[in-house]
């Protein structure tokens, strides 16, 4: 494991911790898209179907458990916890699941390494992760007051993706024959989706003003 990969994973973990901090201590999920959170839960469930029969390392195993547990608990909080649920911007979070899930499933059935259930689900999870942030970005754009934790959450998620790109570049040059087209293209698309957000996030940080995305 190289430093970019580790930094990427830690950034991913921090993004989840920031979100849990907001939900658990402030008891608020204002500005957070439940649709994106449910899509992430689906991403982890479909990607880690092999959690018990493919062992790569303790690190991978524990991280998989953490990602599964945290994503499911975030969904539980937003749906079932009374105070948290009250703060959910339901009317603004209108993105339709089927526009995301169905194309990803079809694409995974057509473009994959092997036409088996686990392999198609794993490929589906990559495509789904690439676009799962869309409901969250739409919600951000509609929210006039983006609070700091929400902004940081999305920023950390984007940073995690950027670090994974660097990890692949590093691996390409250090591991002979390291080529993963499906992972790379899905990852590149995912990172590009954050470009616009990054631009306004850095601008607001530089000018020391509250983050607001143009309509």
């Amino acid at each position: 494991m190289n430093v970019f990969r580790l930094a990427g994973d830690m950034t991913h973990l921090s993004s989840i911790l920031v979100l849990l901090l907001k939900i658990h201590t402030i008891k608020s999920c204002a500005g957070i898209s439940l649709k994106t959170q449910e899509l992430y839960a689906l991403v982890f469930i479909t990607r880690y179907l092999d959690i018990f029969d493919r062992f790569t390392s303790i690190y991978n195993f524990l991280m998989k458990l953490i990602f599964l547990g945290s994503s499911l608990s975030i969904v539980w909080y937003m749906r079932r916890h009374k105070a948290v649920h009250r703060s959910y911007d339901k009317d603004q979070d209108t993105f339709r699941y089927q526009f995301i899930v169905l194309p990803c499933l079809l694409l995974a059935l057509v473009i994959n390494h092997k036409l088996t259930f686990k392999e198609v689900m794993w490929t589906f999870s990559l495509y789904l992760e690439a676009v799962a942030i869309l409901p969250q970005l739409v919600l951000l754009q509609r929210t006039r007051n983006i609070d700091n934790l929400t902004g940081q959450y999305v920023f950390l998620l984007g940073a995690y993706r950027a670090l994974y790109l660097l990890n692949w570049v590093y691996r390409y040059f250090t591991e002979p024959g390291f080529v993963r087209w499906i992972t790379w293209i899905a990852g590149l698309v995912q990172t590009l989706l954050y470009a616009d957000f990054f631009y306004y996030y850095i601008l607001s940080w530089k000018n020391n003003v509250k983050l607001e995305l143009p309509a």
């Binding site: 092999d50 390392s57 998989k64 990602f67 390494h113 794993w122 993963r180």
Partner: peptide, 10 residues
């Protein structure tokens, strides 16, 4: 063999 090799990442 790409499919199995690809899964050492999260």
């Amino acid at each position: 063999k790409q499919d199995s090799e690809a899964k050492d990442e999260l």
